[in-house]
Design a binder for these strands. Sequence first.
DNA 1: AAGCTTCTTGGTCAAATGACCAAGAGCCTG
DNA 2: CAGGCTCTTGGTCATTTGACCAAGAAGCTT
Lengths: 226, 226
Amino acid sequence: MTKSLARRTFDEDVVLDAAAHVFRKRGYGAATVREVAQAAGMLPGSLHYRYPSKEALLLDLMERALTRVLELGRAAVEHAPDPAERLRLGLRAHLEALLSGDDDFYVLLYDWRSLRGPSMQAVLRLRSRYEAFWDDLLWEAVRSGWARPNLDVELLRQFGIGAMNWVAQWRHESDPRTPAEIADTFWSYLAFGLLAEDKRPGKKTFGQMAKRRKAGPKRPAKGGRK
Amino acid sequence: MTKSLARRTFDEDVVLDAAAHVFRKRGYGAATVREVAQAAGMLPGSLHYRYPSKEALLLDLMERALTRVLELGRAAVEHAPDPAERLRLGLRAHLEALLSGDDDFYVLLYDWRSLRGPSMQAVLRLRSRYEAFWDDLLWEAVRSGWARPNLDVELLRQFGIGAMNWVAQWRHESDPRTPAEIADTFWSYLAFGLLAEDKRPGKKTFGQMAKRRKAGPKRPAKGGRK
DNA sequence: AAGCTTCTTGGTCAAATGACCAAGAGCCTG
DNA sequence: CAGGCTCTTGGTCATTTGACCAAGAAGCTT
């Protein structure tokens, strides 16, 4: 992506893997190109030959990550016709990618903000492709009648993606829950909610239930600043 | 916290506000102490007098952020007896803090990993206090019978906190949804789930439902909202 | 106003960093 | 096997960075 050499013989992935590892461990801002070069088993000069700048490295890395997660999501969902099942498989694919040990996704989560200008735009374009993938899944679920019709799909998509991405923050290698188990549990929270069976509303719409409580005392942020 | 001078006369918050702003805009790793000093309206030497290192600055910042969000959460929930309502108010408080424009919380979200050793430990201790606050709210909801008894509270807490924190990533200043509205919608997703009313399970436990999905009887969906 | 503490000034310093390059080695193709 | 690629070597270079400090200003207490 960065260079358009007629024919490149080196393995791009080795370098990107090394970069992903270093960026994840140290953070993009604190990482140095020298560290990346060393992790890739080459001298800084060689790395510079491949990537003219640190940011070019980050850009390629993020494009790889976004392309991958989208591919994995599509593949996971491909052969399931049922919208609810597709949703569940999508959650699984996302979490399995995120927790697979692939450093790319961590870097994507933490350091995408470090890109500037056109690089940022390119990543945002890819990101919205992934978001569209999820919106499609959710609309399917609504249209099929499985999900309530009165959902704010965009908000719901962010809700779910946020919950999933956060798993990268708290799950340790030693956690007994597998990614698939977490995904399935999340799916059940999303599908059924927390409410006990005997507390489910009858005819009342959910929307009213959510809104009808009067606003509590609105407390402005405390601890005056600025 | 960092220094234990007998009596300090300067306003700690001015410096931390400046640091928060710079760290948020540039990322902790890429930010420099010089930038922070300038934003605080002082020379680098003066900043060094107050904070011996960049990391000490970050530590104080994170302790302030965590202390604040916990205070805000407790205050929001304080006078509501109903567990469901307490949950909703807790969500509101969290999102209102996060989206209030206070830079602290962004820095907390993105850069807590940059701390090392004892500083990291101190932040983790505070973080688990905040997590315990949420676990209490959730357990109340379960014990009161409002929520299903077969919930993995820890997983659920991470689920919700993740969804909320992600809002910081996507919401722009111009977004018409207020933090409180987002919180209420999230609450309704959490409480009721996505499932259409006529697809709700009968007597079966949700746990079983989560594992054995099948399409229910097809009837037109009822309620709509808005 | 003396005396003490708090904080600022205006620097220094060694180390690190991102970018860069001339020369050469290695390898494929014709 | 010669020519032309691709890639590596082993550096350089101007800046930037975090940390530090001696000396003095400012403010509070008595």
